[in-house]
Design a protein around this nucleic acid. Structure first.
Length: 457
RNA sequence: GGUCGGAUGGCCGAGAGGCGAGGCAAGGGACUGCAAAUCCCUCUACACGGGUUCAAAUCCCGUUCCGACCUCCA
Protein backbone atom coordinates (compact mmCIF):
# COMPACT_ATOMS: atom_id res chain seq x y z
CA UNK A 1 0.00 0.00 0.00
CA UNK A 2 1.31 3.40 -0.87
CA UNK A 3 1.86 5.82 1.95
CA UNK A 4 0.70 9.37 2.43
CA UNK A 5 3.43 11.88 3.06
CA UNK A 6 3.10 15.52 3.97
CA UNK A 7 5.34 18.41 4.94
CA UNK A 8 6.05 18.72 8.63
CA UNK A 9 6.79 22.30 9.65
CA UNK A 10 8.73 21.13 12.66
CA UNK A 11 11.13 18.75 10.88
CA UNK A 12 11.02 20.89 7.71
CA UNK A 13 10.74 17.73 5.71
CA UNK A 14 8.22 15.40 4.19
CA UNK A 15 7.03 12.85 6.69
CA UNK A 16 4.96 9.75 6.14
CA UNK A 17 1.85 8.92 8.10
CA UNK A 18 2.23 5.43 9.50
CA UNK A 19 -0.77 4.51 11.57
CA UNK A 20 -2.10 1.00 11.87
CA UNK A 21 -4.85 -0.55 13.89
CA UNK A 22 -6.59 2.70 14.78
CA UNK A 23 -7.88 5.84 13.10
CA UNK A 24 -5.46 8.65 12.21
CA UNK A 25 -5.89 11.39 14.81
CA UNK A 26 -6.21 14.81 13.22
CA UNK A 27 -6.70 18.08 15.03
CA UNK A 28 -7.51 21.23 13.13
CA UNK A 29 -7.57 24.66 14.76
CA UNK A 30 -11.05 25.97 14.19
CA UNK A 31 -12.65 29.37 13.92
CA UNK A 32 -13.08 32.09 16.48
CA UNK A 33 -16.77 32.63 16.04
CA UNK A 34 -17.15 36.38 16.30
CA UNK A 35 -17.50 36.98 12.55
CA UNK A 36 -18.02 35.16 9.27
CA UNK A 37 -15.30 32.83 8.05
CA UNK A 38 -13.87 34.26 4.84
CA UNK A 39 -12.56 32.24 1.93
CA UNK A 40 -9.04 32.42 3.37
CA UNK A 41 -10.13 30.75 6.60
CA UNK A 42 -11.87 28.14 4.53
CA UNK A 43 -8.66 27.32 2.69
CA UNK A 44 -7.24 25.94 5.92
CA UNK A 45 -10.37 23.98 6.74
CA UNK A 46 -10.29 22.56 3.23
CA UNK A 47 -6.71 21.46 3.88
CA UNK A 48 -7.85 19.28 6.79
CA UNK A 49 -10.60 17.88 4.59
CA UNK A 50 -8.22 17.02 1.75
CA UNK A 51 -5.88 15.28 4.18
CA UNK A 52 -8.74 13.28 5.69
CA UNK A 53 -10.17 12.26 2.36
CA UNK A 54 -6.78 11.29 0.95
CA UNK A 55 -6.12 9.10 3.97
CA UNK A 56 -9.53 7.49 3.54
CA UNK A 57 -8.74 6.90 -0.12
CA UNK A 58 -5.78 4.87 1.10
CA UNK A 59 -8.01 2.80 3.32
CA UNK A 60 -7.28 4.53 6.63
CA UNK A 61 -9.83 5.68 9.17
CA UNK A 62 -9.71 9.25 10.36
CA UNK A 63 -10.71 10.83 13.65
CA UNK A 64 -10.90 14.57 13.09
CA UNK A 65 -11.50 17.10 15.86
CA UNK A 66 -11.94 20.80 15.28
CA UNK A 67 -12.42 23.30 18.07
CA UNK A 68 -14.78 26.24 18.20
CA UNK A 69 -13.25 29.20 19.97
CA UNK A 70 -16.19 30.95 21.57
CA UNK A 71 -14.26 32.48 24.43
CA UNK A 72 -12.32 35.64 23.74
CA UNK A 73 -8.64 35.04 23.64
CA UNK A 74 -7.17 38.52 23.76
CA UNK A 75 -5.96 37.53 27.17
CA UNK A 76 -2.38 38.69 26.66
CA UNK A 77 -3.39 42.27 26.46
CA UNK A 78 -5.99 43.95 28.58
CA UNK A 79 -5.76 47.15 26.57
CA UNK A 80 -7.36 45.76 23.43
CA UNK A 81 -10.87 44.67 23.87
CA UNK A 82 -11.92 41.08 23.56
CA UNK A 83 -13.25 40.40 20.06
CA UNK A 84 -16.21 38.38 21.12
CA UNK A 85 -17.30 40.88 23.73
CA UNK A 86 -16.84 43.91 21.51
CA UNK A 87 -18.77 42.30 18.69
CA UNK A 88 -21.52 41.47 21.17
CA UNK A 89 -21.63 45.10 22.27
CA UNK A 90 -21.79 46.13 18.62
CA UNK A 91 -24.70 43.80 17.85
CA UNK A 92 -26.26 44.50 21.26
CA UNK A 93 -26.77 40.86 22.16
CA UNK A 94 -25.42 38.27 24.54
CA UNK A 95 -21.89 37.24 23.51
CA UNK A 96 -22.87 33.58 23.40
CA UNK A 97 -25.64 34.43 20.97
CA UNK A 98 -23.04 35.94 18.66
CA UNK A 99 -20.91 32.86 19.04
CA UNK A 100 -23.75 30.48 18.21
CA UNK A 101 -24.80 32.55 15.23
CA UNK A 102 -21.36 32.52 13.62
CA UNK A 103 -20.80 28.91 14.57
CA UNK A 104 -23.93 28.05 12.64
CA UNK A 105 -22.72 30.04 9.63
CA UNK A 106 -19.36 28.32 9.83
CA UNK A 107 -21.05 24.94 9.43
CA UNK A 108 -23.10 26.25 6.53
CA UNK A 109 -19.96 27.40 4.74
CA UNK A 110 -18.25 24.05 5.30
CA UNK A 111 -21.23 22.25 3.82
CA UNK A 112 -21.24 24.54 0.80
CA UNK A 113 -17.65 23.57 0.09
CA UNK A 114 -18.31 19.88 0.66
CA UNK A 115 -15.95 19.85 3.61
CA UNK A 116 -16.89 16.75 5.57
CA UNK A 117 -17.86 17.44 9.20
CA UNK A 118 -15.34 16.61 11.90
CA UNK A 119 -16.10 13.92 14.43
CA UNK A 120 -16.78 16.64 16.95
CA UNK A 121 -16.56 20.39 17.37
CA UNK A 122 -15.79 21.02 21.03
CA UNK A 123 -16.54 24.53 22.23
CA UNK A 124 -14.01 26.29 24.39
CA UNK A 125 -16.78 27.52 26.68
CA UNK A 126 -17.79 23.93 27.36
CA UNK A 127 -14.26 22.68 27.93
CA UNK A 128 -13.42 24.89 30.91
CA UNK A 129 -13.11 21.93 33.36
CA UNK A 130 -10.64 20.21 31.03
CA UNK A 131 -8.60 23.38 30.73
CA UNK A 132 -8.60 23.87 34.50
CA UNK A 133 -7.26 20.39 35.05
CA UNK A 134 -4.61 20.86 32.35
CA UNK A 135 -3.53 24.09 34.03
CA UNK A 136 -3.53 22.37 37.42
CA UNK A 137 -1.21 19.68 36.08
CA UNK A 138 1.13 22.30 34.65
CA UNK A 139 1.31 24.12 37.98
CA UNK A 140 1.95 20.89 39.83
CA UNK A 141 4.81 19.80 37.62
CA UNK A 142 6.49 23.19 37.72
CA UNK A 143 5.71 24.33 34.18
CA UNK A 144 3.41 27.13 35.31
CA UNK A 145 3.06 29.58 38.17
CA UNK A 146 0.26 31.62 39.73
CA UNK A 147 0.57 35.39 39.90
CA UNK A 148 -0.57 37.67 42.70
CA UNK A 149 -3.75 38.68 40.90
CA UNK A 150 -4.79 35.08 40.31
CA UNK A 151 -3.58 34.64 36.75
CA UNK A 152 -1.59 31.59 35.75
CA UNK A 153 1.39 31.78 33.41
CA UNK A 154 3.30 29.14 31.55
CA UNK A 155 7.02 29.38 32.11
CA UNK A 156 8.61 29.30 28.67
CA UNK A 157 12.03 28.52 30.15
CA UNK A 158 10.66 25.34 31.72
CA UNK A 159 10.31 23.87 28.26
CA UNK A 160 13.79 23.43 26.73
CA UNK A 161 12.75 22.79 23.13
CA UNK A 162 10.56 25.89 22.93
CA UNK A 163 10.78 27.30 19.41
CA UNK A 164 11.20 24.00 17.58
CA UNK A 165 8.27 24.59 15.24
CA UNK A 166 8.78 28.24 14.35
CA UNK A 167 12.55 28.48 14.67
CA UNK A 168 12.20 31.31 17.16
CA UNK A 169 14.63 31.34 20.04
CA UNK A 170 13.74 32.70 23.43
CA UNK A 171 16.44 35.37 23.36
CA UNK A 172 15.33 36.55 19.92
CA UNK A 173 11.90 37.18 21.31
CA UNK A 174 13.23 39.73 23.73
CA UNK A 175 11.66 43.15 23.79
CA UNK A 176 13.28 45.94 21.87
CA UNK A 177 13.01 44.45 18.41
CA UNK A 178 10.46 45.37 15.85
CA UNK A 179 7.32 44.41 17.66
CA UNK A 180 5.91 46.37 20.55
CA UNK A 181 6.12 44.40 23.70
CA UNK A 182 4.01 45.29 26.70
CA UNK A 183 4.12 43.69 30.06
CA UNK A 184 1.68 44.01 32.89
CA UNK A 185 4.46 43.15 35.29
CA UNK A 186 3.08 39.78 36.33
CA UNK A 187 5.15 37.57 34.06
CA UNK A 188 8.47 36.35 35.40
CA UNK A 189 9.96 36.11 31.92
CA UNK A 190 9.20 38.01 28.74
CA UNK A 191 8.16 34.96 26.71
CA UNK A 192 5.79 33.49 29.31
CA UNK A 193 2.12 33.46 28.42
CA UNK A 194 -1.18 33.32 30.23
CA UNK A 195 -2.94 30.01 30.77
CA UNK A 196 -5.58 31.63 32.93
CA UNK A 197 -6.27 35.32 33.24
CA UNK A 198 -8.00 36.77 36.28
CA UNK A 199 -11.30 38.43 35.49
CA UNK A 200 -10.30 41.94 36.56
CA UNK A 201 -13.30 44.15 35.82
CA UNK A 202 -14.83 41.70 33.35
CA UNK A 203 -18.22 40.31 34.21
CA UNK A 204 -19.14 38.40 31.07
CA UNK A 205 -17.58 35.15 29.87
CA UNK A 206 -15.73 34.51 33.12
CA UNK A 207 -15.59 31.32 35.14
CA UNK A 208 -14.61 30.23 38.64
CA UNK A 209 -11.27 28.53 39.08
CA UNK A 210 -9.02 27.44 41.94
CA UNK A 211 -7.16 30.76 41.39
CA UNK A 212 -10.24 32.96 41.33
CA UNK A 213 -12.69 34.10 38.67
CA UNK A 214 -11.24 34.51 35.22
CA UNK A 215 -11.03 33.18 31.71
CA UNK A 216 -8.68 30.84 29.85
CA UNK A 217 -5.75 31.84 27.69
CA UNK A 218 -6.09 31.15 24.00
CA UNK A 219 -3.58 28.31 23.66
CA UNK A 220 -4.77 26.07 26.47
CA UNK A 221 -8.07 25.11 24.82
CA UNK A 222 -6.35 23.26 21.98
CA UNK A 223 -4.12 21.44 24.44
CA UNK A 224 -7.03 20.37 26.64
CA UNK A 225 -9.24 19.31 23.74
CA UNK A 226 -6.66 17.47 21.70
CA UNK A 227 -5.29 15.52 24.64
CA UNK A 228 -8.76 14.58 25.79
CA UNK A 229 -10.53 13.81 22.52
CA UNK A 230 -7.57 12.33 20.65
CA UNK A 231 -6.31 10.18 23.51
CA UNK A 232 -3.13 12.19 24.16
CA UNK A 233 -1.73 11.72 20.70
CA UNK A 234 -2.21 13.85 17.59
CA UNK A 235 -0.92 12.32 14.38
CA UNK A 236 -1.53 15.39 12.25
CA UNK A 237 -2.12 18.90 13.56
CA UNK A 238 -3.48 21.31 10.97
CA UNK A 239 -3.70 25.09 11.05
CA UNK A 240 -2.97 28.30 9.21
CA UNK A 241 0.63 29.45 8.84
CA UNK A 242 0.03 32.39 11.14
CA UNK A 243 -0.69 30.00 13.99
CA UNK A 244 2.77 28.50 13.77
CA UNK A 245 3.88 31.13 16.25
CA UNK A 246 2.90 31.72 18.97
CA UNK A 247 -0.19 29.52 19.07
CA UNK A 248 1.23 26.15 18.05
CA UNK A 249 4.56 26.75 19.72
CA UNK A 250 2.76 27.37 23.00
CA UNK A 251 0.30 24.55 22.51
CA UNK A 252 3.22 22.16 21.96
CA UNK A 253 4.96 23.35 25.12
CA UNK A 254 1.78 22.88 27.14
CA UNK A 255 0.76 19.51 25.73
CA UNK A 256 4.24 18.02 25.89
CA UNK A 257 4.73 19.25 29.43
CA UNK A 258 1.50 17.57 30.48
CA UNK A 259 2.08 14.16 28.93
CA UNK A 260 5.87 14.16 29.15
CA UNK A 261 6.41 13.26 25.51
CA UNK A 262 5.81 14.60 22.01
CA UNK A 263 2.04 15.06 21.69
CA UNK A 264 1.97 15.87 17.98
CA UNK A 265 3.69 13.87 15.24
CA UNK A 266 3.19 16.21 12.34
CA UNK A 267 2.52 19.93 12.17
CA UNK A 268 0.91 20.89 8.90
CA UNK A 269 0.44 24.56 8.02
CA UNK A 270 -1.58 26.01 5.19
CA UNK A 271 -0.29 29.16 3.58
CA UNK A 272 -2.32 32.31 3.35
CA UNK A 273 -4.67 33.23 0.62
CA UNK A 274 -4.44 36.66 -0.95
CA UNK A 275 -7.30 38.19 -2.83
CA UNK A 276 -6.60 40.28 -5.93
CA UNK A 277 -2.98 40.59 -4.81
CA UNK A 278 -3.47 41.66 -1.22
CA UNK A 279 -3.81 39.94 2.09
CA UNK A 280 -7.45 39.53 2.91
CA UNK A 281 -8.33 41.95 5.66
CA UNK A 282 -10.98 44.35 6.74
CA UNK A 283 -8.68 47.31 6.23
CA UNK A 284 -7.85 46.29 2.66
CA UNK A 285 -11.58 45.91 2.15
CA UNK A 286 -11.13 42.68 0.24
CA UNK A 287 -12.70 40.14 2.55
CA UNK A 288 -14.59 37.64 0.43
CA UNK A 289 -17.22 35.32 1.83
CA UNK A 290 -18.83 32.28 0.30
CA UNK A 291 -22.01 34.31 0.07
CA UNK A 292 -20.22 36.77 -2.20
CA UNK A 293 -19.41 33.98 -4.65
CA UNK A 294 -22.99 32.84 -4.65
CA UNK A 295 -24.27 36.33 -5.30
CA UNK A 296 -21.88 36.54 -8.27
CA UNK A 297 -23.62 33.50 -9.68
CA UNK A 298 -20.71 31.18 -8.96
CA UNK A 299 -21.04 27.67 -7.62
CA UNK A 300 -19.35 27.62 -4.17
CA UNK A 301 -17.54 24.49 -5.33
CA UNK A 302 -15.72 26.63 -7.88
CA UNK A 303 -13.86 27.99 -4.84
CA UNK A 304 -12.98 24.45 -3.83
CA UNK A 305 -11.64 23.81 -7.31
CA UNK A 306 -9.78 27.12 -7.50
CA UNK A 307 -8.09 26.43 -4.16
CA UNK A 308 -7.05 22.96 -5.28
CA UNK A 309 -5.39 24.41 -8.39
CA UNK A 310 -2.62 25.61 -6.07
CA UNK A 311 -0.54 23.79 -3.52
CA UNK A 312 -1.52 24.34 0.05
CA UNK A 313 2.02 25.35 0.98
CA UNK A 314 2.29 28.30 -1.34
CA UNK A 315 0.73 31.66 -0.91
CA UNK A 316 -2.01 31.90 -3.39
CA UNK A 317 -3.58 34.86 -5.08
CA UNK A 318 -7.26 34.27 -5.67
CA UNK A 319 -9.00 36.49 -8.20
CA UNK A 320 -12.49 36.75 -9.63
CA UNK A 321 -10.95 35.60 -12.92
CA UNK A 322 -9.63 32.40 -11.38
CA UNK A 323 -12.99 31.77 -9.72
CA UNK A 324 -14.85 32.26 -12.97
CA UNK A 325 -12.37 29.98 -14.74
CA UNK A 326 -12.95 27.32 -12.11
CA UNK A 327 -16.70 27.74 -12.39
CA UNK A 328 -16.69 27.14 -16.12
CA UNK A 329 -14.39 24.14 -15.76
CA UNK A 330 -16.83 22.75 -13.24
CA UNK A 331 -19.74 23.18 -15.63
CA UNK A 332 -17.78 21.64 -18.48
CA UNK A 333 -16.85 18.60 -16.40
CA UNK A 334 -20.39 18.05 -15.16
CA UNK A 335 -21.87 18.07 -18.62
CA UNK A 336 -19.03 15.87 -19.88
CA UNK A 337 -19.84 13.44 -17.07
CA UNK A 338 -23.46 13.35 -18.14
CA UNK A 339 -22.38 12.63 -21.72
CA UNK A 340 -20.16 9.80 -20.56
CA UNK A 341 -23.07 7.76 -19.33
CA UNK A 342 -24.34 6.89 -15.91
CA UNK A 343 -21.84 4.45 -14.46
CA UNK A 344 -21.66 4.64 -10.68
CA UNK A 345 -18.54 2.49 -10.60
CA UNK A 346 -15.56 4.06 -8.92
CA UNK A 347 -12.53 3.50 -11.09
CA UNK A 348 -8.92 3.98 -10.20
CA UNK A 349 -6.15 6.17 -11.51
CA UNK A 350 -2.66 5.66 -10.20
CA UNK A 351 -1.44 9.11 -11.25
CA UNK A 352 -4.15 10.87 -9.31
CA UNK A 353 -3.62 8.58 -6.37
CA UNK A 354 0.12 9.11 -6.21
CA UNK A 355 -0.18 12.86 -6.74
CA UNK A 356 -2.44 13.13 -3.71
CA UNK A 357 -0.23 10.91 -1.60
CA UNK A 358 2.79 13.06 -2.45
CA UNK A 359 2.23 15.96 -0.09
CA UNK A 360 -1.26 16.60 -1.42
CA UNK A 361 -0.27 17.59 -4.94
CA UNK A 362 -3.73 18.64 -6.01
CA UNK A 363 -2.52 20.70 -9.03
CA UNK A 364 -0.91 17.60 -10.51
CA UNK A 365 -3.99 15.50 -9.80
CA UNK A 366 -6.17 18.08 -11.55
CA UNK A 367 -3.78 18.17 -14.48
CA UNK A 368 -4.20 14.43 -14.82
CA UNK A 369 -7.97 14.82 -14.73
CA UNK A 370 -7.77 17.28 -17.63
CA UNK A 371 -5.62 14.79 -19.53
CA UNK A 372 -8.16 12.04 -18.88
CA UNK A 373 -10.89 14.30 -20.20
CA UNK A 374 -9.08 14.66 -23.52
CA UNK A 375 -7.59 11.18 -23.78
CA UNK A 376 -8.82 9.54 -26.99
CA UNK A 377 -7.74 6.07 -25.92
CA UNK A 378 -10.14 6.00 -22.99
CA UNK A 379 -13.77 5.10 -23.44
CA UNK A 380 -16.42 7.48 -22.11
CA UNK A 381 -17.25 4.94 -19.43
CA UNK A 382 -13.62 4.73 -18.32
CA UNK A 383 -13.44 8.51 -18.16
CA UNK A 384 -16.53 8.70 -16.04
CA UNK A 385 -15.24 6.07 -13.68
CA UNK A 386 -11.90 7.85 -13.25
CA UNK A 387 -13.76 11.08 -12.57
CA UNK A 388 -15.86 9.22 -10.01
CA UNK A 389 -12.63 8.08 -8.41
CA UNK A 390 -11.12 11.56 -8.28
CA UNK A 391 -14.31 13.05 -6.92
CA UNK A 392 -13.91 11.07 -3.71
CA UNK A 393 -11.24 13.59 -2.73
CA UNK A 394 -12.08 16.55 -4.95
CA UNK A 395 -15.79 16.35 -4.09
CA UNK A 396 -16.79 18.76 -6.83
CA UNK A 397 -20.12 16.98 -7.29
CA UNK A 398 -19.02 16.01 -10.77
CA UNK A 399 -21.94 13.61 -11.10
CA UNK A 400 -24.38 16.39 -10.42
CA UNK A 401 -26.81 16.79 -13.24
CA UNK A 402 -26.92 20.50 -13.83
CA UNK A 403 -30.40 21.43 -12.79
CA UNK A 404 -32.05 23.84 -15.10
CA UNK A 405 -34.26 26.62 -13.89
CA UNK A 406 -37.48 26.42 -15.95
CA UNK A 407 -38.29 29.10 -18.49
CA UNK A 408 -41.23 31.44 -18.04
CA UNK A 409 -44.02 31.00 -20.57
CA UNK A 410 -42.99 34.30 -22.18
CA UNK A 411 -39.46 33.05 -22.61
CA UNK A 412 -40.67 29.77 -24.12
CA UNK A 413 -42.88 31.71 -26.50
CA UNK A 414 -39.92 33.86 -27.54
CA UNK A 415 -37.88 30.77 -28.24
CA UNK A 416 -40.64 29.35 -30.39
CA UNK A 417 -41.03 32.51 -32.43
CA UNK A 418 -37.28 32.59 -32.91
CA UNK A 419 -37.34 29.04 -34.25
CA UNK A 420 -40.08 30.08 -36.66
CA UNK A 421 -38.17 33.18 -37.73
CA UNK A 422 -35.11 31.08 -38.37
CA UNK A 423 -37.08 28.56 -40.38
CA UNK A 424 -38.22 31.50 -42.53
CA UNK A 425 -34.65 32.80 -42.70
CA UNK A 426 -35.84 35.98 -41.00
CA UNK A 427 -32.41 36.68 -39.54
CA UNK A 428 -33.21 40.17 -38.26
CA UNK A 429 -36.13 38.95 -36.15
CA UNK A 430 -34.19 35.90 -35.00
CA UNK A 431 -31.27 38.05 -33.78
CA UNK A 432 -33.61 40.52 -32.09
CA UNK A 433 -35.16 37.72 -30.04
CA UNK A 434 -31.74 36.29 -29.25
CA UNK A 435 -30.76 39.68 -27.77
CA UNK A 436 -33.99 39.85 -25.79
CA UNK A 437 -33.37 36.44 -24.26
CA UNK A 438 -29.74 37.31 -23.56
CA UNK A 439 -30.98 40.13 -21.34
CA UNK A 440 -32.76 37.46 -19.25
CA UNK A 441 -29.51 35.51 -19.01
CA UNK A 442 -30.47 32.95 -21.62
CA UNK A 443 -27.85 32.03 -24.20
CA UNK A 444 -29.28 30.68 -27.42
CA UNK A 445 -27.14 28.67 -29.80
CA UNK A 446 -27.85 27.09 -33.17
CA UNK A 447 -26.78 23.59 -33.99
CA UNK A 448 -27.39 21.45 -37.05
CA UNK A 449 -30.30 19.86 -35.13
CA UNK A 450 -31.88 23.21 -34.35
CA UNK A 451 -31.59 25.82 -31.64
CA UNK A 452 -30.75 25.13 -28.02
CA UNK A 453 -30.50 27.34 -24.99
CA UNK A 454 -28.82 27.53 -21.60
CA UNK A 455 -28.64 29.89 -18.64
CA UNK A 456 -25.50 31.95 -18.86
CA UNK A 457 -24.35 31.14 -15.32
C1' G B 1 17.30 42.62 14.61
C1' G B 2 15.40 37.17 14.57
C1' U B 3 12.71 33.25 11.85
C1' C B 4 10.35 31.05 7.48
C1' G B 5 9.27 31.21 2.31
C1' G B 6 9.44 33.24 -2.66
C1' A B 7 11.00 35.64 -7.85
C1' U B 8 8.85 31.24 -14.27
C1' G B 9 5.53 34.14 -20.65
C1' G B 10 0.09 39.52 -21.06
C1' C B 11 -1.97 37.28 -16.17
C1' C B 12 -2.34 32.94 -12.66
C1' G B 13 0.63 29.18 -11.82
C1' A B 14 3.19 23.50 -12.07
C1' G B 15 8.03 21.61 -12.69
C1' A B 16 13.47 20.69 -9.09
C1' G B 17 19.92 18.64 -13.82
C1' G B 18 18.68 16.80 -20.51
C1' C B 19 12.40 15.91 -23.01
C1' G B 20 9.60 23.81 -22.95
C1' A B 21 2.80 21.46 -17.69
C1' G B 22 -1.85 23.37 -17.46
C1' G B 23 -5.40 27.26 -16.97
C1' C B 24 -7.08 32.31 -18.07
C1' A B 25 -6.65 36.29 -21.51
C1' A B 26 -5.32 37.57 -26.58
C1' G B 27 -4.78 36.56 -31.95
C1' G B 28 -5.77 33.26 -36.24
C1' G B 29 -8.61 29.14 -38.37
C1' A B 30 -12.84 25.40 -38.71
C1' C B 31 -18.13 25.32 -37.86
C1' U B 32 -22.42 29.27 -38.31
C1' G B 33 -26.91 33.33 -42.18
C1' C B 34 -24.30 36.15 -38.19
C1' A B 35 -23.14 34.70 -33.38
C1' A B 36 -22.48 31.58 -29.05
C1' A B 37 -20.55 27.02 -27.63
C1' U B 38 -16.99 23.58 -29.23
C1' C B 39 -12.58 21.97 -31.77
C1' C B 40 -7.65 23.10 -34.06
C1' C B 41 -3.45 26.41 -34.27
C1' U B 42 -0.29 30.61 -32.51
C1' C B 43 2.24 33.61 -28.80
C1' U B 44 7.87 29.75 -25.78
C1' A B 45 9.35 32.11 -20.07
C1' C B 46 12.34 30.93 -15.75
C1' A B 47 15.15 38.25 -11.11
C1' C B 48 20.62 39.59 -11.64
C1' G B 49 26.13 38.28 -11.45
C1' G B 50 29.45 34.42 -10.99
C1' G B 51 30.49 29.06 -10.42
C1' U B 52 29.91 23.42 -10.92
C1' U B 53 28.58 20.18 -15.18
C1' C B 54 28.96 17.28 -21.57
C1' A B 55 24.21 19.68 -20.07
C1' A B 56 21.31 24.53 -15.16
C1' A B 57 14.75 27.39 -14.59
C1' U B 58 16.45 23.26 -11.46
C1' C B 59 22.71 22.43 -7.80
C1' C B 60 26.54 26.00 -5.26
C1' C B 61 28.23 31.18 -3.94
C1' G B 62 26.98 36.25 -4.04
C1' U B 63 23.46 40.33 -5.16
C1' U B 64 18.73 42.70 -5.74
C1' C B 65 13.70 42.63 -4.94
C1' C B 66 9.03 40.60 -2.76
C1' G B 67 5.87 38.19 0.93
C1' A B 68 4.78 35.96 5.78
C1' C B 69 5.58 35.51 11.14
C1' C B 70 8.01 37.85 15.65
C1' U B 71 2.50 37.67 21.50
C1' C B 72 -5.21 39.50 17.54
C1' C B 73 -5.12 36.49 12.85
C1' A B 74 -6.76 30.49 8.77
Amino acid sequence: MSIFSIYNTQSRDLQTVNVTGRPVHIYCCGPTVYRDAHVGNLRTFLLADLISRTLKLSGLDVLLIQNITDVGHMSEDFESEDKMLSQAKLEKVDPFEIARKYEEKFHTDLARLNIAPAKSYPRASETIPGMLSSIQTLIENGSAYVSESGSVYFSAESFPSYGAISGNRLDSLKPGHRYEYSDDGEKKFHADWALWKSAGNRSEMVWDSPWGRGFPGWHIECTAMSLDLLHSHVDIHVGGIDLRFPHHENERAQSNSIIGSEAVDLWVHGEHLLFEGRKMSKSANNVVLVEDLISQGLDPLSLRLALMENRYRSQMDLTWDSLRAANSTLNRWRSAMANWGSSETIGFDSEIHSALLADLDTPRALLRLRAVEKDQLLTPMQKREIFNYADQVFVLDLKRVVEVKPLTSEQSALLESRATARANKNWGESDRIRDLLARDGIVVSDNPEGQSWAWSN
